[in-house]
Structure formats: C-alpha cells, structure tokens
Design a protein around this nucleic acid. Structure first.
Lengths: 230, 230
DNA sequence: CGACGGCTTGATGATCATCAAATAGGGTGG
DNA sequence: CCACCCTATTTGATGATCATCAAGCCGTCG
C-alpha cells in the first residue's frame, strides 16, 4: 500500500503508507537518487512531500565544524517532508540508491481537505514518526556504546525478521559512518563495539554488511541492560 | 488562543493552540497536576488529548535500571497525547504545578472530520513538535556538556525573551535532575557546567533557579560553537 | 533546631574520542 | 587475470570528557 492507493481507497491507508493515485498524474513523479544524493536541504521550500519506494533515506543535520547527526532513516513506505511552515528544517539524502515518489504539498493538502480519512491518516503518519523518535532519544541520551549498537541492530532486525522469528539475517544499507552519525558515536567506536558483539556471540557478520542475529532475545537483553550479567 | 477558540473559529487556530469551545462541554475538563504528578504512563490508553494551560509538562521514558530520558518539555499552548494506535508510548508528568485541559480523543477526531482546517492545524501541531525534536537530537548526539547547557538555556531564553531583545532573565521551572535527564548528563556535570558558564560570564544566576542572560549572542556562540549548519 | 532534599564541589576512574597505522574489499586499467 | 589504488573498516595507543563516588553546603519545613 502506498499513498496512491490510499487516496483512492482511504480505508486502506496505513501510517507510512499513503497512496495518491487520484491525485492528478501531472503532479506526481517517481525518480531515483544516487547514493549520497540529496533530496532536499535544511531551509529549502517544502513544496513537495515524498514517499520512499525502495532504498533508504537519511534525514540529518550538520554543524559547521563538520559534526553530523542523523535524525532517522526512512524506509520504503515512509513519508518525508511534511512541514508546518512551508520550509524544511532538516536535510534528507539517499543512503544507497533510492527511489522516491514526490507529490506537490499543495495537492496533498487539498486532497486531504476533501478526505477527512486521508488527513487522519497523515496525522497518524506523523504521530507514528514522532513515537519512533522517542526511543532514539533514550538511545542517544542514556545508553552506552554496546547498548546503542544492540538497539540499532535490534530495530533493523525486527523490521527484516518474519513475525515471531527468533533469528534473522540481513544486509546493512548504511556505512559505519552513517551508523556512527545516527548513534552519536565515532566510526572507530562503532567498529570496536561491533567486534565486541561478534566476539560475545550476540551477532555474526560474514562480511562487513551482512548481519546475522542468531537469537533476537539475547540481542534484546544487550540492548536493554548493559550486558556483563549475561 | 487555545483549542477552544480554534474549534470555534478555525482560522485563528495556531500550531500548539487548539480551541475546543464547540466541543460539548461535558467532554472537556480542566484540572491541576501537582509537581511530579503523572498525566499518563507509557502504555496507557490514549483516550484523551491534553493542552497545557500553565506550568510545564515533561514527557519521559524510563529504562528498567532507573535511567531516565526526558524527550521534551511541553509549555502552555502545547498539545500532548495524540496517538496513532490508541495508546501512549511515553509517560508525561508535571514539572511544577501545572494546569491542563483534557478532551476525549474521539471528540477531537470527530470535530476534525467536520473541520478540514482543524485537522490541518492538528497536523501542523505534530510537524511542529517533530521539528522541535530535531535540534534535540543534535544536542544529545553531538554536543559537549557546555554546548548542551548553552543550547538548553538559549532555547528557554528565546521563549521568554521579547522580540529582538538582547538580554533576558527568567526562572527555571525544572530541577537539575530534570535538566540532566533532558540533556543526557548527570546532575553533577550539569552543576559544574553551569558554574563554568557563570564564571565565563555567559550567564548569571542570582539564585539556583533564576537565569540571567546578559548577551544572547554570546550564549549563541557557546551553544553553537561553530554550529548551525545548513 | 535538626533533618531532609536539592545543589555544589572534589577526587578518581571508565568510557569513548582522537590520532595513527594496518588491513580488507571493490573497482580500474594494463 | 592481476596489479594497483582508493576508500571503508579494523585495530592499537593515548588522552579528554564526563560518570561515579563521596562529602559538604544551603534553604526549607516539620
């Protein structure tokens, strides 16, 4: 389900999944971003709203001295670029090669006016994203390196794992630098901590991008408590 | 402007300011929370949405070992408790004595259905809050103790200062513990860092709760020690 | 007054950042 | 197909920042 089908069929619209099939075709557009290519910059006019089709988008913020913080990753189905004041307040760029669909903000808002269900769904998208950010605050503010990495991998694992699965294997789409900037660490600490997680058997990594979680519960324990006791 | 007047007069509704005057009176309720009293817990059913009338509310999250992270502070006019799935995903409690207005979630959603403007404003509230959280990520993930506190005080100062003012004096409503839990630090480091800011003349504190910022630009420099990218 | 909670200050140590260098993997051109 | 290069990643050594443990201070309240 995407924005398209949802506008066409409001009852099926899910958070992070809006379908804009009924929106005039000339307004929408699907295109592909190369890795690291920017979707929009902080401060740009927010004329468009985007839906990730496949790939991965990172929203981030830069300090002048080069420090970077990634606020969040947007996966397929996620909505990017809603604005309350007509301007973006963050930059967004592709992690790997990424396809997105764009729709003029005005068109989406107009459609929402005629469709209470659509605007309710948009609101759900927002509150959904908002809640997704909550746990990230705890990770950034209160967790140590090992808990940060475990939490990060756990979140990805849950996204990729089948319902009720106990183990899962997947490929990272982002670099160590991206992970570091997301978790508020350095690449060196990310690397060292991954090594520690491998050594303790919580994860396996056949190559630098493939992560295998043999026991999701064990990973949960590390993500929540600092291990040592386990 | 509050939720009340906004429902009555949609065109005047501003983000963080919703007026529900037209909502049946039996649905809404104004009450006072004592300091540290809880508005709702993580996991509670989100039957009500709240507007802060005066005082201050903190939304926070707890790890099982007692570590706490405050996600954000809600000031008068702010809306709390919108949920996408009918449950709260964070706890909220009063910092000092705080008055809030509650409205049944169902009633607000129904009113929104008949009022495209209202639901657009609600959406604005959400995106507004979402963007407010962005800078907090940078603070938590990428700033050192001094920058964290300077950023924190600067945000409060801007809220209290008159337009174009160069200096401002205000009272903190929260304890050192609250500040520490908001900024991802310990109370000791908060205290030490405040002392450092006082010593360097960036702020003055006649007593533990009164903050005087003689030069907002100087405070900006410390907070953004090269920061505020683009 | 004495006790309590919140705050400050001091001493010490752990964690993580920084600087530096080696290794691995991917892509290019011969 | 291999040599080479470039970048990403890993590993090592060292140090700064901040957490922790501990004690003392201040204002409030019973």
């Amino acid at each position: 389900m995407s924005i398209q089908t949802a506008i066409a069929n409001p009852t099926t619209l899910q958070p992070g999944n809006i379908n804009w099939m009924e929106v005039p075709a000339n307004g929408q557009c699907v295109f592909t971003l190369a890795p690291k290519e920017t979707l929009f910059h902080d401060g740009d006019e927010a004329d468009f709203v985007y839906e990730v089709i496949d790939g991965l988008i990172a929203s981030h913020s830069l300090l002048c001295d080069g420090r970077r913080q990634i606020m969040g990753f947007y996966h397929p189905g996620d909505i990017i670029g809603m604005s309350h004041d007509g301007n973006h307040h963050t930059s967004c760029s592709a992690v790997g090669s990424t396809r997105v669909r764009s729709i003029p903000r005005s068109m989406l808002l107009n459609a929402a006016k005629d469709r209470p269900e659509l605007s309710e769904k948009l609101l759900n998208c927002m509150t959904n994203q908002l809640y997704g950010m909550q746990s990230h605050f705890v990770v950034l503010g209160r967790k140590c390196a090992q808990e940060k990495l475990a939490s990060f991998i756990l979140a990805l694992a849950r996204r990729y794992a089948a319902e009720d699965a106990e183990s899962v294997t997947f490929r990272l789409q982002m670099t160590r630098m991206d992970i570091a900037d997301y978790l508020g660490m350095t690449i060196e600490t990310v690397s060292r901590t991954l090594t520690k997680l491998k050594t303790s058997g919580v994860i396996e990594m056949p190559d630098t991008l493939t992560v295998c979680v043999p026991d999701l519960f064990k990973l949960e324990d590390v993500a929540e408590h600092d291990d040592e006791g386990w």
